[in-house]
């Protein structure tokens, strides 16, 4: 796989260096860990800090979502690997304005351990209160009866959105955690992979697929999915994904949702809008109201081909949070 890189061992640090230089109005690096980034703006005393993070390779996630109305800081890990506790702890200290910090991250063994250790250290060493919100939106990663085992994928965008907006509106730590958990509870995602990604260090594709195949329900690190199937037209793929989501989380006629059609890296906007077209038709046919839509690359897997569909069911509180403006380097909503 061709890549525009220098030394494969330096891709994460060089990316962060470029990112920070590109958006000095938005983000700055902290001093101890070169992978600890926080908002460049001074956040207000008494505001709950929102900390996100995870492996790199998902750009614009996660660092692209540091900004007004979203996260205050991010800890960046190696490619597809959780950051260690040190950078998480450093960001925690920087964004704690006396009201505590909430961690929003995907439910992966590594993230659970590293963010867990960081939270313990923050409490022990600095007395910082930390709330934890695990994102578990990937319905293909475990059956519904084991939903606590599910992984976090593109739906983390909505959970971060809810937490970030709530924190900016002045919610308490307990309430930011509550709405973020509610957002997670009402968010479901399922994806389909068409072509693998390759890690810069190995150069090898993350999985094998024939030209006429797709991987249904794959994870966003190139983990193989639930099953391989014959590549279908976009309409059928959209139907499969939406129907699986609605079977998992029924949405009644008249209820409202926000929709995210997320590209995994190398799938074009053209394809994503073709997918969205059918998603919209299905939801309209069922009388489900789309309150707001997001179509684009929100959480990728390097250059993987494919997309995911996310639905979040909205109540009045979540509608208000989804509507809240945001201004981040990679995502702006007026």
């Amino acid at each position: 796989m061709k890549k525009l890189i220098n030394n494969p061992d330096n891709v994460v640090d060089e990316m962060i260096e470029g990112y920070v230089k590109a958006y000095p109005q938005y983000v700055k690096r902290l001093s101890d860990n070169k992978r600890s980034l926080v908002t460049a703006k001074e956040t207000r005393e008494g505001k709950v800090g929102v900390l996100i993070g995870g492996g790199s390779g998902h750009e614009p996630a996660f660092m692209g979502y540091v900004g007004d109305g979203m996260a205050d800081g991010v800890a960046v890990g190696n490619i597809f690997a959780s950051p260690p506790p040190d950078p998480i702890l450093e960001v925690t200290r920087a964004i704690d304005k006396g009201a505590g910090v909430v961690y929003v991250y995907g439910n992966y063994a590594g993230d659970v351990m590293n963010f867990g250790m960081a939270a313990e250290l923050a409490d022990l060493e600095y007395g910082t209160k930390v709330g934890m919100v695990l994102v578990t939106d990937d319905i293909a990663s475990a059956p519904k009866k084991e939903s606590e085992k599910r992984r976090g994928i593109a739906g983390e965008f909505f959970v971060t959105k809810a937490a970030g907006a709530a924190a900016e509106k002045g919610y308490s730590l307990e309430d930011v955690v509550r709405v973020a958990k509610k957002a997670n509870h009402l968010t479901r995602t399922m994806g389909v992979g068409l072509t693998p990604c390759s890690l810069p260090q190995t150069g090898k594709p993350s999985f094998e697929l024939e030209d006429n195949e797709m991987e249904i329900g794959l994870g966003h690190h190139g983990e193989p999915g639930m099953e391989k199937g014959e590549l279908q037209p976009a309409d059928q793929v959209a139907e499969r994904l939406v129907n699986e989501i609605l079977a998992d989380m029924p949405v009644e006629n008249g209820e409202k949702v926000a929709v995210l059609v997320n590209g995994l890296g190398s799938t074009t906007r053209m394809e994503l809008y073709i997918m969205f077209r059918r998603v919209e038709q299905i939801l309209s046919e069922k009388g489900i109201e789309i309150h707001r839509s997001y179509v684009g690359d929100y959480s990728t897997s390097l250059e993987m081909g494919g997309c995911s569909v996310t639905l979040i069911k909205l109540d009045n509180e979540l509608i208000e949070l989804v509507n809240h403006p945001a201004d981040c380097p990679m995502y702006v909503q007026k």
Partner: peptide, 12 residues
Amino acid sequence: FLSAVGSSVGPL
């Protein structure tokens, strides 16, 4: 080791 890798093997 932990600071270099994070991941799940780091804490382990």
